[in-house]
């Protein structure tokens, strides 16, 4: 390479860097760290919000997505993944970030409805025609029924499954903590495989042909049907189930450092607008705005706060080491 050639190349490179610099100034990026089932939801939301924001402020915004198990994502944020906002599966995981001082205490009151712009619940996915006649939670403990659920120790979604079953047993006539424990233990006797994450369990059920019923997020069950064939599976909604409220919040420390607070807040508020709610409904989440139409069946739903006294307590009683879940598998003495 001649010196002149080198000089022109360098100049061109410098120019490219300079223009890239100005491009970045007008194009703000946000990082939304979320859990597994929301990929499709947020890729729609992000497009819609970007055009909304362009119209409102004239700035372009790029929202980057990161997805994974809820607990793992929370850990990444704690360890320095620079998320402007998190949209996780359970408040427990967001609390864990708050404990480390990255989010101000009281975050759950910042946005309406416990900072959960959409809700979901746990339903059953069964094989077409429902050959095992699974209608409700008590059908899951019958002998010969094989149930697929991920491991509550490693999957946020599976914790909702577990608590939903527990709550159902508790609400039966004469239901006590003891009968609920017994019920859930019987249910897990019917579980042949414990995948580590929700999507892994879905794949075990769908691809490997294991099990008669999959316990899944409502939105996941419908997504699986849409993606993998309505001719093979159907959704069964039980008589009652748990109200899952996946919370969203701004990571204060990151947003303040990067100067993206205003945008991050606008982004989360957008989830509560009619447009945001419609997109949530489209992806089979339950919008919190009752005016937005939804295709989902009405179910009696109970909250984790009422039935279990909140996530901190539920986690400690059921999923911590030695909790009720571990007791199911503890070796008999």
């Amino acid at each position: 390479m001649t010196i002149r050639k080198l000089a022109t190349t360098l100049a061109a490179a410098a120019l490219a860097v300079a223009t890239a610099g100005t491009a970045i100034a007008a194009n703000v990026t946000l990082l939304n760290v979320s859990y597994d089932p929301t990929r499709e939801l947020y890729s729609d939301i992000n497009k819609s919000f970007a055009s909304y924001w362009k119209g409102k402020s004239g700035d372009s915004v790029t929202i980057r997505q990161s997805h994974g198990g809820s607990g793992k994502q929370a850990r990444a944020v704690i360890d320095g993944l620079e998320a402007d906002v998190v949209t996780l599966a359970l408040a427990y995981d967001v609390d864990a970030i708050a404990v480390k001082g990255l989010i101000k205490p009281g975050w759950q009151r910042e946005l309406p409805h416990n900072s959960a712009p959409y809700t979901s619940t746990i339903v059953f996915l069964v094989r077409k025609g429902n050959p095992k006649k699974i209608r409700n939670w008590d059908d899951l403990v019958k002998p010969g029924v094989s149930v697929i659920t991920p491991n509550p120790k490693t999957s946020g979604g599976a914790r909702w499954n577990y608590l939903a079953a527990w709550g159902f047993a508790l609400h039966q006539k004469g239901g006590t903590e003891a009968t609920a424990k017994e019920f859930v233990a019987r249910l897990f006797k019917n579980v042949p495989v414990l995948d580590s994450g929700a999507r892994g369990a879905t794949n075990t059920f769908v691809q490997r042909g294991m099990g008669d019923v999959l316990l899944a997020w409502e939105n996941e069950a419908f997504l699986a049907i849409n993606e993998l064939g309505p001719d093979k599976f159907e959704v069964v909604t039980p008589s009652e189930s748990i109200l899952a409220e996946p919370p969203v919040t701004v990571i204060d420390r990151v947003a303040d450092k990067r100067g993206t607070r205003k945008l991050a807040e606008e982004y989360l508020k957008y989830l509560y607008t009619d447009e945001g709610q419609k997109i949530a409904a489209k992806h089979y989440y339950r919008p919190i705005n009752p005016k937005i139409p939804t295709r989902l069946a009405k179910v009696k739903l109970y909250t984790i706060d009422k039935a279990f006294g909140g996530w901190q307590k539920a986690q400690k009683t059921h999923f911590a080491d030695g909790g009720t879940f571990d007791q199911i598998y503890a070796p008999r003495k």
Binding site: G69, T154, A320
Partner: peptide, 18 residues
């Protein structure tokens, strides 16, 4: 658990509980 659970999975399990 107790049958086909490998040790690295238990490490992940611990991490999930922070």
């Amino acid at each position: 658990p107790m049958v086909s659970e490998i040790t690295p999975l238990l490490i992940i399990t611990k991490l999930e509980q922070f």
